[in-house]
C-alpha cells in the first residue's frame, strides 16, 4: 500500500435542476490501489457520485481533487450496469474503441483489444458480435474495454447486478485477479452486502435521499480471496457488520 491519495472529495453535493438533492456533503479520500465499494439502497446517489468522479456530471457544491494530477481520458475506465456495447461492432472493435478515439491506429488498437479479450477469458471471440454473446461474456467485453487503456481508476456501476449468481462469482474472482495483477484503483458501486465484502478492502455505506456517507468500514481479510474466504467465519462476520451498518443507515434516514 502506497498510502498516497489518488482522489479526494470535499463537501461534494449534487442537486438536480428539478430540485432533488441526490448526494450531500460527501468527504472522501481514496488511496491509490484501493478497492472501495459504495454500498447503499437504490436512490442513494451512488451512480451520481460515480458520474461526478468520472467527470460526466459536475458537483453543485464541493470539490473533487486529484492530488497526483488531473486524469486524462485514458486514466479512467467505466463499466456500466448494462454491457453498453456497440451492437454493430465486433467484440475486438468494441474493446479497441477507447484507443481509437485517442488516435491509436486501428491495427494496433485491435491487437491490444485482442490481448485484453484474452485476459478477460474471451480469447477466440474477437470477431463475435455482441448479439452472439451471453450476458456474462458481454460484461467481460465491457470490462476489457474499460481496462484496455490501463486506467489508474476503474469505476464500476453495479456491473454484475443483472447476472446470475454463478456467473457473478466467476466475474468477481476474475476482477480480483486483474486488480491484483494491474493494481488499478477501483470504486465499485453495488447494492449487495455479500459482493461488497467479498471484493473490497473498504466499504462506504450510503444512506438515501439525499445520499450521505453513513459508515466507513474496512474488510481486513488478506488477498487473494477465493472460495475459502466466501465460506469462512471471517467473511460471515464482516457481512453481518456491514448489514448492520446498512440497516442502521436506513433506519436513521427513515426516522
Amino acid at each position: 500500500m502506497t498510502g498516497t491519495s489518488l482522489l479526494t472529495l470535499a463537501g461534494v453535493s449534487k442537486r438536480y435542476p428539478t430540485g432533488t438533492l441526490a448526494v450531500e456533503g460527501i468527504d472522501l479520500a481514496l488511496e491509490a490501489g484501493d478497492f472501495l465499494s459504495l454500498l447503499g439502497p437504490s436512490g442513494c446517489g451512488k451512480s451520481t457520485l460515480l458520474r461526478m468522479i468520472a467527470g460526466l456530471a459536475e458537483p453543485s457544491t464541493g470539490r473533487i481533487a486529484w492530488p497526483g494530477g488531473a486524469p486524462a481520458p485514458r486514466d479512467i475506465g467505466f463499466v456500466f450496469q448494462e454491457p453498453t456495447l456497440m451492437p454493430w461492432a465486433s467484440a475486438a472493435a468494441n474493446v479497441a474503441l477507447p484507443l481509437e478515439l485517442a488516435g491509436t491506429p486501428r491495427r494496433d488498437a485491435l491487437a491490444r483489444a485482442g490481448e485484453w479479450l484474452g485476459r478477460v477469458g474471451l480469447a477466440g471471440f474477437e470477431n463475435a458480435y455482441p448479439r452472439a454473446l451471453s450476458g456474462g461474456m458481454k460484461m467481460r467485453v465491457s470490462l476489457a474495454r474499460a481496462l484496455v487503456t490501463r486506467p489508474r481508476l476503474l469505476l464500476m456501476d453495479e456491473p454484475f447486478a443483472a447476472l446470475d449468481e454463478i456467473t457473478r462469482f466467476k466475474l468477481n474472482n476474475d476482477l480480483l485477479a486483474l486488480w491484483d495483477a494491474e493494481r488499478f484503483t477501483v470504486i465499485f458501486v453495488t447494492h449487495s452486502v455479500f459482493e461488497s465484502v467479498y471484493l473490497s478492502r473498504r466499504i462506504l455505506v450510503l444512506a438515501a435521499r439525499p445520499g450521505r456517507l453513513d459508515a466507513d468500514l474496512t474488510v481486513d481479510a488478506p488477498y487473494p480471496r477465493g472460495e475459502a474466504f466466501r465460506t469462512s467465519a471471517d467473511y460471515a462476520g464482516h457481512c453481518r457488520a456491514v448489514s448492520e451498518a446498512l440497516a442502521a443507515a436506513m433506519e436513521r434516514r427513515a426516522a
Partner: peptide, 13 residues
Amino acid sequence: DPNLQDLFRLYGA
C-alpha cells in the same frame, strides 16, 4: 444509447 454517449464523452471523443 445514452450510456454509449457518456462513454464517448468519457474518452474525450
